[in-house]
Every structure is written in C-alpha cells, then in structure tokens.
C-alpha cells in the first residue's frame, strides 16, 4: 500500500511579512520564468527578500491573495488566458511583462498573419476542439502594464535589477537605445559595415549584451525595436547590400513580428516604402 508523503512541520520561526512576488505563465516556452531559476547566485537571496507567493513551475503553492510584483510570461492566446490576465492585474500592484511573448505576442504571433483555423489544421487533424483566439496578443491588449522587459529570452541581470529597484521603492528604468551603441562600447568589429552582413543591431533594442556580434554573428533582432529605430532605413540599406526582399521580410518578422516599426521595415518591398 502506498503511504502518504511525509509532511514535515513548517519552520516555527515567525517571519516578518515580505513583499509578495507572483510568477504567471501564458502561451510561452517557460524560458523567461526559468531566467529567475537561472539566477543561481541570487535565487536564495531573492527568496529571502521576497515571498515567492505564486510560481507554479517551482512550487505547489495555490494561487491566492494579492501580489506586490507580478511577473508575466507568455502571450494571450485563448479566452481562458484572457480572463486569467485580467485576474492577475486585479491582484497585482506592479505588473511586469517578461519578454517578447508577453509584450508583443512573441514568435507565435507569426500565426497572426494567417487564418488561425488554417494553421490549426496543419497541426491537428480535427481542429474543432482547439480553442484559440484569432491572434496571439500581448498582455497590454487587455490590461494596463507597468513595465515590459525586452528579449527572447529576457536578460536575467535585467530581471534582478528590476526586482531590486522595485523592492527599493523606485521605478525601474530599462534602456531601449540601439544595440549598436553597446556593440561599439565593447569594441566589436561591425559586421554590417566591415562584412556587409544583414545585422539588425542599428534598429534593435539593447539589453542582451551584444552577444551575437561577439560570436561573429549579426544581430537577428530578438530584443525587438529600439526606441525610434528607423528600421525602414536599415531595411533599405540591407537591400542595397544584396539581401533579398523575402529574406529582409523574414528578418524583421520573427520575434517581434507585431512591433509596428519592424512591420513597416518588413514591407519596404511591397511598394509601400515609407
């Protein structure tokens, strides 16, 4: 006969109340919330300073009460999630979207360009039982959002920084200048100028640490548009360097396909050049 699991008594030491943190998942790969568990050096400290009150990937604790900080991962893809994001907002003081899915619908927003019914048919033989919104939406389509962390995935150092600022009562600030600046600061050779490779660095937000260029790879835009990116000018330059129109379209239409600046840039060869 199977025995019940041994239930060990809770620690008796009373703790003074700490800010309550909730981690919530919608349509996503789990990578952004994993970033928190990937903070190997800080995780136990974070758990000291905040009460991890809801984090289904890490704990069986049920969803109850309110949250000082809510971290939201994933895009809103069905009606259940639509109700859930409203509920999270109602429970939370400061709501942070983690990554491209929560802020822009993510890579799965590539399906927004086609009829979802047709796409479902590609994956499922009988699509009648699959309930899916027509598009993959960001959280901000339904509720006010206090902060959006960029990236696919986010940078875990930025996440820790945001938590630290928030706990100190300050409003966190996220730099959104072009990745190009970061790359120059690191003294990396420009792959666009020196090698003519199709790099999205001039139009993409900083935050990753310019990893790709340090690995001899042009930026492929996984942190989304920088502030005032002038992405269309970059698209035109890439065309001059010989990139095919369809390759340029795909380059701007991957991780941040719904971002207006990237959409515009992806269409410069449709005869709608701006």
């Amino acid at each position: 006969m199977i025995q019940p699991l041994p239930i060990i008594a809770e620690p008796s030491k009373p703790r003074k109340p700490r800010p309550r943190l909730g981690v919530f998942k919608f349509a996503s790969c789990d990578g952004c919330q994993l970033s928190l568990l990937d903070c190997e050096d800080q995780l136990l400290d974070v758990a000291e300073k905040v009460e991890i009150a809801f984090f289904r990937e890490a704990t069986r604790r049920p969803l109850e009460g309110t949250f000082d900080v809510a971290l939201v991962e994933g895009s809103i893809s069905n009606s259940e999630q639509e109700a859930a994001i409203r509920d999270v907002r109602a429970r939370s003081r400061f709501l942070v979207c983690l990554g491209a899915c929560a802020s822009h619908g993510g890579i799965q927003a590539l399906r927004n360009q086609s009829k979802s019914e047709e796409l479902i048919r590609i994956v499922y033989a009988d699509p009648s039982t699959i309930e899916l919104l027509d598009q993959s939406h960001p959280a901000s389509a339904y509720v006010p959002v206090d902060l959006e962390l960029p990236g696919c995935p986010i940078n875990k150092d930025q996440l820790i920084e945001v938590l630290a600022w928030t706990l100190a009562g300050a409003r966190p600030m996220i730099h959104r200048h072009a990745l190009c600046l970061e790359c120059k600061r690191r003294g990396l050779v420009c792959v666009l100028v020196a090698r003519g490779e199709p790099c999205l660095g001039p139009a993409t937000s900083t935050g990753c640490g310019a990893i790709c260029m340090s690995y001899d790879r042009p930026c492929f835009g996984c942190y989304g548009p920088a502030e005032k990116p002038n992405a269309s000018a970059l698209a035109a330059r890439l065309a001059e360097l010989g990139a095919a129109p369809d390759a340029i379209r795909r380059l701007f239409q991957t991780f941040y396909a719904t971002a207006p600046d990237f959409q515009k840039a992806s269409r410069i060869h449709d005869g709608t050049r701006v």
């Binding site: 349509a27 890579i107 399906r111 796409l119 994956v123 993959s136």
Partner: peptide, 11 residues
C-alpha cells in the same frame, strides 16, 4: 493540458 497551442509546425 491547457497550455495554448503555439502552432510552430504551421508557421
């Protein structure tokens, strides 16, 4: 599984 389908094979 109430994880929403993301339709990778389609896109």
């Amino acid at each position: 599984i109430f994880e929403a389908p993301r339709l990778f094979e389609a896109f």
